[in-house]
Write a protein that binds this DNA or RNA. Structure first.
Length: 587
RNA sequence: GCACUUGUAGCUCAAUUGGAUAGAGCACCUGACUACGGAUCAGGAGGUUAGGGGUUCGACUCCCUUCAAGUGCACCA
C-alpha cells in the first residue's frame, strides 16, 4: 500500500503546495459497511487545502484515480476517502506475493534479542501461571524471530534458597527414601509434595508453640523445622557434600519432570542459567557503582542507591554483612547475560508483581552507564486467578500444568470421537491429534488476551472449542486441506477478471500478514497474531460458504480458488506457528 | 497512606495506537446445502466504554477528578 501513500504525498504537494511526511498519512482498512479496501483520513489535510474535509477528500481522490491505474473507484464520506483497488491488483498480489515461499519472511534486521521466560522454582511443579508465562515467552520469541531478529531463548532456574531446603528437609524427615522410580510419580510432583508437607508440619509446630504462649511471630521464628531448614541452607552454602548430593539428586528429579512438561507445552530454550551459579554475582558491579558515586555506603556498611530524584525510593543493593540481595544478583546476571551474547535487546517475561523491581533494576543499570541497559524490557503479564482467588502452591490451590494438559486432551478426545471423522487413525496418531487440539484450545485461550491483563480461569468451565478458539482455526485449516486433497493444482494463472467480494476480502486479509508480524513484534503481543488469524479463518469460511471451489463455474476459476485456499492454509499455519500451535491435516 | 496496572454487552475478549454507526465469541432466539468437512455460515436481541469534567473537527484511547478491583511499597527470591 506504499504506492498509495507516496501518491498522496504528491497529491498534497501538487494540490496544496504543502510538504507532508508519509508517516503523517493515516491509511487504514476500510470499514466493512463502506465501499473500498483502504481509507485515507483527510482531516489532517484540511489545514493545507483550506477546504472542507469532503472537498479535500474528493480532490485527492480525483488526483489518485488519475495517477494510479490500480485505483478503480473512490468515494468520500465525511472526512474519509475510501479507495477501491481493482481486482487485477489483488489477483497479482496473490500470485506474486502471497503464494511465494518468502511471503511474510521478514529480512534479518541484524539485531539480537534475548527472551528470558519460564524461570521456575525447583521446589514445586509448574502451574497455570507458569503455563501463561511459558506460552507467552515462547510465542514472543517466535514472533521476534519471524520479524527478523536473531533470538536467544533463556531460562533462569531458581534452584537454590530456603524454599528448596524446605523440600529437602521434609523429604529427609518423612520421605522414607521415596524416589520417582519407586513411586512412579513425576519428579517435580514428588518434590512439590514434600514442599507442601513441610508447610503442613511447620504450621503444626507454630500452632503448638502458640499454645505454649509464644506470639505468632516468635513461633514462626522458633519452630524447629524452620531452624533446621536454615541450617540446611548454611550447609548448602558451605558446600557440604552430603547436602549438595541430596540437592543434586532432587534437582535431577525435578528437571526430569519439567522436561516432560516443557515438551508437552512445546517450548524450548537455547540456554539455561542457574541461580546456584549466579547468586553471588553482582559484587564487582557494587564496587563499580561505589567508585562512580552512583551508590553510597551507610554507616553500618550497607550499600544503597538513591532514586528519589526519579520518583522512586532509596534501594538497598548490598547488605551490611556484604551479602547479596535479589537486586545485586539480578544486576550481576544481567551483566553475565550481556557478556555471553552481546544482544541488542533483552526481554524478561515476568509477572506484573515485579514491575517495581524491574523498573529499579533497569534504572540502576542505566545510571551505571551500561549502554546495553536501554535494550532491557520487562514483559509484564497479569496473574492468572481462580474464581476463589489467587493460586497458592503451599496451600495446594493451584491448577497444575500437567493435570490441565491432560484435561484438555481428554476434552479434545470427546469432541473428536463424537464427530467420528478420524476412525481410520491409529491409536498413536489419535493421541497425537488430541494433544494438538487440546493444546490448541489452551494456548489460544491464554494467548489471545493482552498479556498485561489479568486472567480469570474457571476450572469448572472448560475452555471452549467453538467460536473464537484455537480448534475453530485448526478446523478451518483441516477443511481446506480436505478440499485440496480432492483436486489437482495445475499452476495455471487466472487472467484478471472481476473478483467476488469474498474472494477479494480474503486476499486483502492475507496481504496484511507481514504487517501483523511487525506489529506483534513491536508490541511484544501474541494477541495481535491470535486475533488476526481468527479474522483470517472467518474470512475464509465466509468465502467457502459463498463459493464452491470444486464445482466452480470453469476450470480457471476453480484453479484460482484452489490457489486462494493454498495461500489461506499456508498463512493460517504460519500464524498459528507463531503462537506455538500446530494445525492438523485432519481432525 | 504512596506508586503502578486494570475497568468495554449477562460472561470471555477486540477496537488499525486520536478516526466513521464501539466489533467478535459464549450463552439466548430465528434461519441455511440432496454441493467441496455443520468444530461451519446468515440473521436477531444485548452498550451512558465504571461515574463526572476537560482538551479538539473527532475520545474506549490523551489530561484532571471520583469510584471499584488487583499488585507492589522486605537487609525473601
Amino acid at each position: 500500500m506504499n504506492f498509495i501513500i507516496e501518491s498522496t504525498v504528491k497529491a498534497v504537494k501538487q494540490l496544496y503546495q504543502a510538504d507532508i511526511a508519509p508517516a503523517d498519512i493515516s491509511l487504514q482498512e476500510t470499514r466493512k459497511e463502506f465501499e473500498g479496501q483502504v481509507t485515507i483520513v483527510t482531516f489532517p489535510f484540511t489545514k493545507f487545502s483550506r477546504k472542507s474535509p469532503e472537498q479535500t477528500g474528493a480532490e485527492i481522490g480525483e488526483y489518485l484515480k488519475k495517477s494510479l491505474k490500480e485505483i478503480s473507484a473512490f468515494n468520500v464520506i465525511k472526512g474519509f476517502l475510501n479507495i477501491s483497488i481493482c481486482s487485477a491488483y489483488w489477483i497479482d498480489q496473490l500470485y506474486t506475493e502471497i503464494l511465494k515461499d518468502d511471503f511474510a519472511v521478514l529480512k534479518p534486521n541484524g539485531k539480537k534479542v534475548m527472551v528470558e521466560y519460564s524461570s521456575p522454582n525447583t521446589n514445586k511443579p509448574l502451574h497455570l501461571g507458569h503455563v501463561r508465562n511459558n506460552l507467552l515467552g515462547y510465542s514472543v520469541a517466535q514472533i521476534l524471530e519471524a520479524a527478523g531478529y536473531e533470538v536467544i531463548k533463556t531460562n533462569l532456574v531458581n534452584d537454590r534458597g530456603i524454599h528448596i531446603c524446605k523440600s529437602m528437609l521434609a523429604w529427609q524427615l518423612y520421605g522414607n527414601g521415596e524416589t520417582p522410580q519407586s513411586t512412579g510419580e513425576k519428579g517435580d510432583h514428588l518434590v512439590g509434595k514434600y514442599y507442601v508437607i513441610f508447610d503442613k508440619e511447620y504450621k503444626k509446630e507454630i500452632e503448638f508453640l502458640k499454645s505454649e504462649g509464644q506470639t505468632e511471630e516468635e513461633a514462626k521464628k522458633n519452630a524447629p523445622l524452620i531452624k533446621q531448614a536454615q541450617e540446611l541452607l548454611l550447609k548448602w552454602e558451605a558446600g557440604e557434600e552430603k547436602v549438595i548430593d541430596l540437592w543434586k539428586t532432587m534437582n535431577t528429579w525435578v528437571y526430569d519432570g519439567f522436561g516432560k512438561t516443557y515438551k508437552a507445552l512445546g517450548v524450548e530454550f537455547d540456554k539455561f542459567y542457574y541461580e546456584s551459579n549466579t547468586y553471588l554475582l553482582g559484587k564487582d558491579i557494587i564496587d563499580e557503582g561505589l567508585q562512580s558515586g552512583v551508590f553510597f555506603k551507610k554507616e553500618d556498611g550497607s550499600v544503597w542507591i538513591d532514586l528519589t530524584e526519579d520518583g522512586l525510593d532509596q534501594k538497598l543493593v548490598l547488605r551490611a554483612d556484604g551479602t547479596s540481595v535479589y537486586m545485586t544478583q539480578d544486576m550481576g546476571t544481567a551483566q553475565l547475560k550481556y557478556d555471553d551474547f552481546q544482544m541488542d535487546e533483552s526481554i524478561y517475561v515476568v509477572g506484573n508483581e515485579q514491575d517495581y523491581h524491574f523498573k529499579v533494576l533497569f534504572l540502576i543499570l542505566q545510571k551505571l552507564g551500561k549502554a546495553w541497559a536501554r535494550g532491557l524490557f520487562h514483559l509484564s503479564y497479569g496473574m492468572v486467578d481462580l474464581p476463589s482467588g489467587k493460586m497458592k502452591s503451599r496451600e495446594g490451590t493451584v491448577v497444575d500444568a500437567d493435570d490441565l494438559i491432560a484435561e484438555m486432551e481428554s476434552t479434545a478426545r470427546k469432541q473428536t470421537e463424537a464427530l467420528g471423522k478420524i476412525n481410520d487413525f491409529g491409536e498413536e496418531e489419535k493421541e497425537q491429534l488430541y494433544h494438538t487440539i487440546g493444546m490448541g484450545a489452551l494456548k489460544y485461550f491464554l494467548l489471545k488476551v493482552d498479556p498485561k491483563k489479568r486472567l480469570l480461569f474457571d476450572p469448572n468451565e472448560s475452555v471452549d472449542f467453538q467460536g473464537h478458539t484455537g480448534p475453530f482455526i485448526q478446523y478451518t485449516h483441516a477443511r481446506i486441506k480436505s478440499v485440496l486433497n480432492r483436486a489437482t493444482i495445475t499452476g495455471m494463472e487466472t487472467d484478471p477478471t472481476e473478483l467476488a467480494p469474498e474472494e477479494r476480502d480474503l486476499i486483502v486479509t492475507l496481504t496484511q500478514f507481514p504487517d501483523i508480524i511487525t506489529q506483534a513484534a513491536i508490541a511484544y503481543n501474541p494477541g495481535t497474531v491470535a486475533n488476526y488469524v481468527y479474522e483470517l479463518a472467518k474470512t475464509y469460511n465466509k468465502f467457502y460458504h459463498e463459493h464452491s471451489i470444486l464445482q466452480a463455474e470453469d476450470e480457471l476459476v476453480k484453479q484460482f480458488r484452489l490457489e486462494l485456499s493454498v495461500a489461506s492454509a499456508k498463512v493460517i499455519s504460519k500464524a498459528m506457528n507463531l503462537l506455538g500451535i500446530d494445525v492438523p491435516e485432519r481432525m
